[in-house]
Amino acid sequence: MKKLELIKIVITVLLCSLLVVPIILSNHSWPTHARNYLLANAQSDTGATNTVSAIYLGYRAMDTLGETLVLLVSVTGTMAILVKLGKEQTDEETTSFSLTPEKRPTNRLRTHLLETVASKLGPIVLLFGFYVMLYGHISPGGGFQGGVIVASAIVFLALGTEVKSKLTSTFVLSRIESLSFLLLILASISGVFFESGFFGNPIKSASSLSANFIILLNIIIGLKVGTSIAVMCIAMMGGSHDH
């Protein structure tokens, strides 16, 4: 039995090295054409100092729309499964996280440490998430990263506070998600009316204001990502019935 496992491990390592070793050993030089073009033109084309933002919201904004659709579909599927799960076992799990310790059936996972730390840390993380989202065109970060940080802040707040607030109710969060997806579609169409095509920047590329479109898209994508992941996590922890 032990010998068989050892043989399996050896075969796996050999197969992996067969894939990886040619990449390590090759001395083919890195492609430089696209890099040089982006270094020279990215800031003047899109107005964003951060070249990564310039690529995924300027040159390749269509791919970002596809990514947002992928996230939408996956969250929809997860919620469909979770809602069915919640109907089968309503009383056991739905109440366990957001109640006071006396009313909770199981309070192994929720301690005073969690309540104190999560409720104090939540607003700070929320602020940082919005900072990463809003300054994505200058500093590292952007809509997706900021959105995920906002989502973890909302999960912190949902875990740490006993009072139900608008921010942690799935009803409000899912409405924000739908609204921001609608806004994303509208913003992508808006370029058509200013002669720059689908997902084109409606502000002319020479002016100093042209980064504003990237800021707008960053905010919309950040809200979309943040609220959808937060809805998923809160629904998993059993708060989907509180609207």
Binding site: P140, G142, Q145, V148, A151, S152, I229, C233, M236, M237
Partner: peptide, 22 residues
């Protein structure tokens, strides 16, 4: 690659851990 680092820290260490623990 600070952009990738932020994504990896937020998604890998934050959200996916919560989902796995759940």
């Amino acid at each position: 690659a600070p952009d990738v680092a932020i994504t990896e820290a937020a998604v890998g260490a934050g959200v996916s851990t919560v989902i796995f623990v759940w």
